[in-house]
Design a protein around this nucleic acid. Structure first.
Lengths: 177, 177
DNA sequence: GTCTATATTGTGATAGAC
DNA sequence: GTCTATCACAATATAGAC
């Protein structure tokens, strides 16, 4: 069965945003990558702002699922968060980097969505670690990894191997060592 | 004496990029903010790519000076780096966030400049701390702060007060406590 | 639901006066 | 060095056929 065009369009949008940058994610480029015409795209998303909204909603859903996994992870939320903060080209990676790029381009909806998911991750870390400062430091290390992912995505780099030495440093931050 | 128009233009470009996002930093908006006409701007920077180059060069200069200060800081490079990684609206903050936004919009020159200054900061941390993993973790915390600055700039938030609790965590990472 | 064709606007860039 | 006027093109959006 055919994947719904609406989903293919969001896939293409996230991919162009994360791999080529916001300037290259034009409606025409997205339509072409999704295999539809510009008019076809605009049937599903009547304006670019609505397309942005669509990706923000997808990120919100994917991030909420991730927070659930994080809260119930046997290794603890800190290690889980750091281990999964590497760019691996997953749907959530592309959605997150895509929304970050939209936010930095100046789209208000992306600003709000990025802030919201960021706060949810931080809260899960605070609840799991207990200590505010340690949770914040772990969050910052993860943010740093995402920031580096913003570069890595454009360069086509993948950081597939979770870094054991870094995880050891994280254990020192949380006091688990 | 009148500040050179060329510098005013770069100031305006960095400010619009960091405070309103890349989409709003059009040649017309930059010219208006700098108090010149579009034609006047294009005398100094014949194309948008040259304007981007100009900001990248400014960042490279400011970052090189900062690396010097960092290497000779009495508190050590780690604490210096973290303490100055907060968004405070300084010229270097605006240049750095501005270039980050250009990079994520898809400008290749910004990609190279951001990568270069990032590597120089990391090298200063490695040289100062000794341990590779610890230096990398400190760099990631600083990157995380910059990543948060990408949000804070748009929201007009300033993180003027260096966070003592975070600096204490950094000491634990570097083994200085 | 998807297409083609077209309208509208914004953006980067040029030409030439002063 | 800076301006005004204008250009060419690209990006978003609309209209209407199928």
């Amino acid at each position: 069965m055919m994947i719904r065009a609406r989903d293919r369009i969001l896939d293409a949008f996230a991919e162009l945003l994360s791999l080529e940058g916001e300037r290259h994610a034009t409606l025409e480029a997205v339509a072409r990558a999704a295999g539809v015409s510009k008019g076809g795209l605009l049937y599903h998303f009547p304006s670019k702002d609505r397309l942005v909204d669509g990706l923000c909603e997808r990120l919100t859903e994917l991030a909420a699922e991730d927070v659930q996994r994080m809260r119930s992870a046997p290794e603890g939320p800190a290690r889980y968060y750091i281990r999964t903060s590497y760019w691996a080209g997953t749907p959530m990676d592309r959605a997150l980097v895509g929304v970050a790029r939209l936010q930095q381009a100046g789209f208000a909806a992306a600003q709000e969505a990025a802030k919201s998911v960021s706060e949810n991750w931080l809260q899960a870390l605070v609840d799991g670690i207990g200590d505010q400062s340690a949770a914040r430091a772990v969050k910052l290390v993860g943010d740093g990894l995402y920031y580096n992912a913003l570069f890595g995505a454009l360069e086509g780099r993948h950081h597939s191997a979770p870094d054991d030495a870094l995880l050891a440093v994280v254990d020192r931050i949380t006091g688990t060592d």
